[in-house]
Amino acid sequence: MAQLETETPHRSNSARTSSNVFRGISRDRTLFEKGHFVTSMGHFIPICNTITQFMPYSFGARLIEERDRLGLTQGDICESTGINRKTQFAYERDHRYPDAGYLMTLLKQGFDVSYMLSGERPPRYGTVHEDLLCNVLVAVDTGLSRAGRSLDAARKAKLVALLYQTSSETGQVDPIVVQKAIDLLS
């Protein structure tokens, strides 16, 4: 198991619970072993079975994760959204769920609301899967050489972009689609 730090993370008074149940190294270590993760700001979040993949499973846990990512306190969120601390605490503990106005305010502050609601981070726009791109380039070069054709850089780039976009839907390059695209250039 991963070595835990020997000090408890610093928590401001606003981040402590009223019962101070999160005090002490032995408590931290016990919670980690029982399937909890301590965030950079000292919040305990449930994790999945393996220690290598952290996946907060509830809306409240993801709300805390996003708040920590942005370096905000409960008080900061209460101030910007106009709710009281008890309501914020209830959201973070999954005792209540927020309305659309609250979520819109968080969205404007940089929260990943889609992730908070679904638990999945959408792929970043412009993300290129290198293996797939390499496969498209090889397929285009192979198809062009079989057809005895060559293309200038601009036309080849457009062909590769079109085939990459088509292939990204399935994650695989379809050689028939590649050949048909090359044939259309004739």
Rank of each mutant, 00 (worst) to 15 (best):
V38E: 07
T170R: 05
Y57K: 13
P175D: 02
K158A: 15
F37H: 15
G24H: 15
L185Y: 13
L31P: 03
A157I: 03
S80M: 02
T73I: 07
K34N: 10
D141L: 10
Y125H: 10
I45P: 04
T52M: 08
E33K: 12
D94A: 05
A147L: 06
R96Q: 14
Q109D: 05
V160L: 04
Q109A: 02
P123W: 03
I51H: 14
S145W: 06
T50K: 13
L70G: 01
S186Y: 05
Y164T: 05
F111A: 03
D94P: 07
R85F: 11
Y164Q: 09
S186I: 01
I176F: 13
L137A: 03
S26Y: 14
Y57I: 08
R11Y: 10
C78Y: 05
G148W: 07
R62F: 09
V128G: 07
R23F: 13
M55C: 10
A154H: 11
S186A: 03
A100G: 01
R29E: 15
R62E: 04
E33C: 09
C78I: 00
S150Y: 14
D76R: 01
V173A: 07
S19A: 04
S168T: 06
L106V: 02
S19K: 08
T142E: 12
Q165G: 05
I45A: 00
L159Y: 06
V177G: 00
I51C: 07
H43F: 15
I25D: 05
D94S: 04
E7R: 06
H95C: 09
L132I: 09
S12Q: 13
S40G: 15
T50P: 06
F37M: 15
G119N: 01
T142L: 10
D76K: 02
P175Y: 06
T17V: 07
T39Y: 12
A181W: 06
P122S: 04
A2D: 11
F44Q: 08
S26R: 14
T17W: 12
T105D: 08
R85D: 04
S58W: 01
D141G: 08
G148Y: 07
Y115R: 00
S26L: 14
P175N: 01
E66S: 03
S14E: 15
L184D: 13
L103Y: 04
Q3Y: 15
E5P: 15
E66R: 05
H43G: 00
D112G: 09
N13Y: 10
T6V: 13
R149P: 06
I176P: 03
M104S: 09
M1L: 13
Q109R: 09
R67F: 07
G24W: 15
I25V: 11
A100L: 06
I77D: 00
V128H: 10
A153R: 13
E92K: 01
G110E: 11
R16C: 09
Q172V: 15
H43C: 02
